[in-house]
Design a protein around this nucleic acid. Structure first.
Lengths: 338, 338
DNA sequence: TATTAAAATACAATCGATTGTATTTTAATT
DNA sequence: AATTAAAATACAATCGATTGTATTTTAATA
């Protein structure tokens, strides 16, 4: 027989011991004597037995698996959040499944449907840029299973959210540019159905207002904040002529714009000062180094999975909405110091 | 009743139709009449039915799930490989589970054990730096299930490998440095139990020999090629005094070393020319831009999953070892042009 | 040694879907 | 209307592990 294909029944037959006893032994039940346990473990090793989780999970209605659903793992911020999640989850004996929505709602829906079919115990999620309605998420929650939202908050009733104060971080970043003498600051914003980007935009606007600068819709660029979006934005900036500052909702777009502007002879920060968001490793390496906002990504992951596991383990807990707000910090580098 | 908790038996009872017919209807079997199918689909929608894959997979002995096991997803190369894998896999209706070994053998073993228990249909894998024996992988293959190795090849009999010609790429990179006039080239190498790093080292050595340069063990640094390893290497380089070239087995270490050397007043490429490996996005952005070797990461992922799925689908195929060698290219940038 | 509680083990149902075989229903043919 | 093949549906076993209950074995007590 091939190793690993053995079942408790094979052990049972080989030893003349009932399969229920074998199961209990392998799970360390005190109902099985030491002597029998030893025999069973020995035989299990001999046959290369590995528990079939499909069967076990079906019976117990538990998979000890949680899923992370996020836009894309190649973003450093998300990759770091995942590390935090995995640390906590593995400690607690849970498996982690990672799923990329690629910021597509269609894909996000497919993923959730598959997670329902596979009966994962809980989901950690940062919704896609296209997600504006939440039926697919409610379908999961209606099974009595929890979702914890990180980074991009969600206003579903009873939802648990972990994020930084995006409004405040944004306000400070913009104010920093103003203090450096910028008068015409462009903002790179993301999809407005995402609360996160609305908050970042709001912080930017409030900072302008506080300092008596005019808020001009033409200076707010909405996009997916990809590399190509950054280049597109840089081109528009050159057309606007008088721009002297950029506050971008992520580093990716900020860096792409910087590279393009540099190639067109713009000096940073003298001509245009730039502030990004996320503290990507690349932001520290580019010339000049990019001022950016650091989020505690690893901690966000740790706390998110802590809260999720707690929710999974006590089903009785309240159904309150929870907003867990962590601190962020503005890291000032050369790209914004005039 | 809560949505989503419905089973075929609930549909069966509600309609007075046997559950076997319900199952066949939901799977589109021609054995069920159109009329009955319609009734069943209607009721399924009404009850929010979602198939329980645990039960289905247990019965069918298929999970339509493949796993990717690799050192860490935050490396751009690996993240890109994953995108290629997912594209192919999703097209074919397979789920993809992503697992990070963090270059730890202990973790890799745990992961494989969990994948066995969860009965995934196949594995795509880039082994950890610590992996020198393969019992854990053989345990999986003994179940009659395939593993495809990418990036880091594996000499297990009957294994399928996808990678570039690391020897050749390395040879060319080193030769390039020599042509730029470098005489004392340091090589950053990885763990020597990994075939990949042995090949890269061999290519470096051969290039030196071909051009009549002495091969000096003190100029070959073995490490995990992390950021801190890069800094450590840079310090040693300063002690060696006469180094005029670096060929690193990855960009991460090369870039960390460059940053450190720059901070100590070394001019790149004039004093020391640098070549990395992997074409990380960061390599194009650093000053000066880093010469590096580009691997077709997305294609590697696509081809790897193609081969894996083929192997999953025809169990009868030969058990030959396969080495699939893709092209790489040296991208020459300012860091190496003297 | 008989009695009885405790310990160890066996029996049997269950989780939800699938599938080979048997039975019933329908429709076509004579 | 009787016959028969084909279509539709029902029955029942199965995948592998778990778990409540029943039974047997062991050991302790009187």
């Amino acid at each position: 027989m091939k190793a690993g294909k053995a079942t408790i029944h094979d052990i049972s037959k080989a030893l003349g011991i009932d399969s229920s006893t074998v199961s209990r032994a392998l799970n360390g039940s005190p109902r099985v004597s030491k002597k029998t346990k030893d025999k069973i473990f020995e035989k299990a090793r001999e046959l290369g037995y590995q528990r079939n989780n499909l069967a076990s999970n079906l019976r117990t209605q538990k998979t000890f698996t949680i899923a992370v659903v996020l836009p894309r793992i190649s973003r450093y911020f998300f990759a770091t959040v995942i590390s935090g999640i995995e640390e906590k989850a593995y400690q607690a004996g849970y498996n982690v499944i990672i799923c990329q929505s690629l910021d597509s709602l269609k894909r996000e829906k497919k993923i959730i449907s598959s997670l329902i079919s596979n009966r994962v115990d809980g989901i950690l999620m940062s919704i896609s840029m296209q997600t504006a309605s939440f039926e697919h998420l409610e379908a999961y929650m209606n099974l009595g299973k929890p979702i914890v939202f990180f980074d991009r908050p969600c206003n579903l009733k009873g939802s648990i959210n972990i994020n930084i104060d995006n409004y405040k971080a944004s306000f400070e970043a913009t104010e920093h540019l103003i203090q450096q003498g910028c008068k015409h600051i462009v903002h790179f914003s993301g999809a407005q159905n995402i609360e996160l980007y609305r908050q970042r935009k709001a912080g930017y606007i409030e900072a302008l207002k506080k300092h008596g600068l005019t808020v001009n819709g033409d200076y707010i660029f909405e996009s997916n904040l990809s590399e190509s979006d950054g280049i597109w934005a840089a081109k528009r900036i050159l057309e606007l002529k008088n721009v002297d500052g950029i506050y971008s909702s992520n580093d990716t777009a900020a860096i792409a714009a910087m590279q393009y502007l540099k190639s067109k002879g713009v000096t940073i920060p003298k001509d245009i000062a730039v502030v990004g968001f996320n503290n990507d490793p690349i932001s520290a390496v580019i010339e000049p180094p990019l001022t950016t906002i650091n989020q505690p990504a690893f901690r966000i992951g740790k706390i998110a999975s802590e809260l999720l596991l707690k929710k999974i383990q006590n089903k009785d807990t309240e159904n309150d909405s929870i907003f867990n707000v962590l601190n962020s910090e503005l890291i000032v580098r050369a790209s914004s110091e005039k």
